[in-house]
Simulated assay, not measured.
Amino acid sequence: MNKLKEVLIENPVIAAIRNDEGLKRIVSSNANIVFILYGDILSVRDICSKLKEKGKLVFVHLDLIDGIRGDQSSVRFIKENVKADGIISTRSSNIKYANQINLFSIQRMFAIDSLSLKTGIKSIHDTNPTAVEVMPGVASKIINVLKKEIKVPIIAGGLITNKKDVIESLSAGAVAVSTTDSSLWNL
């Protein structure tokens, strides 16, 4: 069992923050894992630093940070300058490079139909991410299929708005859920 999977099992609710208000709420919450879904090349280091000071495990969604391109230099910047624990990305090249430089990698995939599911599974096998975040997270059937096809931890994200959604996603086989709903961060 990889290190990240163990941490996800112990901390199944991940705080996903989209703005400074979310940042203020997360620093005093019980959530130990945070997905940064906002910011720019100038602010992301400060955001990460505030979270790391509180002992949080921090992942930066590379595709959502203004001023950062989806290339190897950006991944290296996140590791060396921002000091995040890992990245999230939909781009296979980012996932592969993060793995090469010993940075946790979470591949985000959108499962909107059977073709995207099939393509996503192939991409996961090709890139070997540390974990996969499947969107939308309330898709129990998709989580069940992925669980049978891939061997990395699954994180359910998107549309997780209540305790029932958390329980259903975890019951379907996800090891954790990510949510911007701060009322769920202390479950």
Rank of each mutant, 00 (worst) to 15 (best):
D20M: 13
H61D: 10
I36C: 08
H125S: 08
K54I: 05
A98S: 13
A111P: 03
N30E: 14
K148R: 15
I101A: 10
K3A: 11
D165R: 09
L42E: 15
N30C: 01
Y97N: 00
I106E: 01
I155P: 08
K54P: 02
G158I: 00
I143H: 13
R108C: 00
S183Y: 10
K79W: 07
H61F: 03
R45M: 07
L37G: 12
S89I: 00
E80R: 15
G39A: 08
K83E: 12
E80M: 12
I106N: 04
A176V: 04
I88P: 02
A111L: 15
A172S: 14
S178Y: 01
I33G: 03
N11H: 03
I41P: 01
L184Q: 09
N30W: 01
S183V: 13
A172L: 07
K122I: 04
R25Q: 14
L8Q: 07
V166K: 12
A15T: 01
L57T: 06
I112G: 12
A174M: 10
I142G: 04
Q72V: 08
A174W: 08
S43H: 09
K163I: 11
N128S: 09
T130E: 03
T119F: 09
N81P: 00
N102V: 00
K5V: 06
I88M: 11
F35Y: 15
T161I: 14
A84C: 09
Q107E: 05
I121M: 01
L51M: 09
S105F: 02
R45S: 15
S140M: 07
W185F: 03
L115H: 12
I33L: 06
L23D: 06
V58Q: 12
G39F: 03
V82R: 11
E80Y: 12
G120F: 05
Q107V: 00
V58L: 07
E10L: 13
K148H: 07
D66R: 14
I154M: 11
D85N: 15
I150H: 10
D66W: 02
N99S: 13
L57H: 06
G173F: 08
E6L: 12
N81S: 15
C48L: 09
E80D: 15
V152T: 13
I101R: 09
D181V: 06
F35N: 14
D40A: 05
V175W: 03
I41S: 11
L8H: 06
I121L: 00
K122D: 07
K122M: 10
I14E: 09
F110Q: 10
V132E: 02
S73D: 15
D63I: 13
S74F: 05
I155C: 13
S178A: 09
I41D: 08
S92D: 10
I124E: 04
V134L: 13
L42P: 02
I65W: 04
C48F: 04
L51H: 10
N81V: 08
K151E: 14
I143L: 11
T90A: 08
E10M: 12
I121N: 00
V134S: 05
A139V: 01
K83I: 03
S43D: 11
T119G: 03
I41C: 05
V34H: 07
A176D: 02
L42G: 05
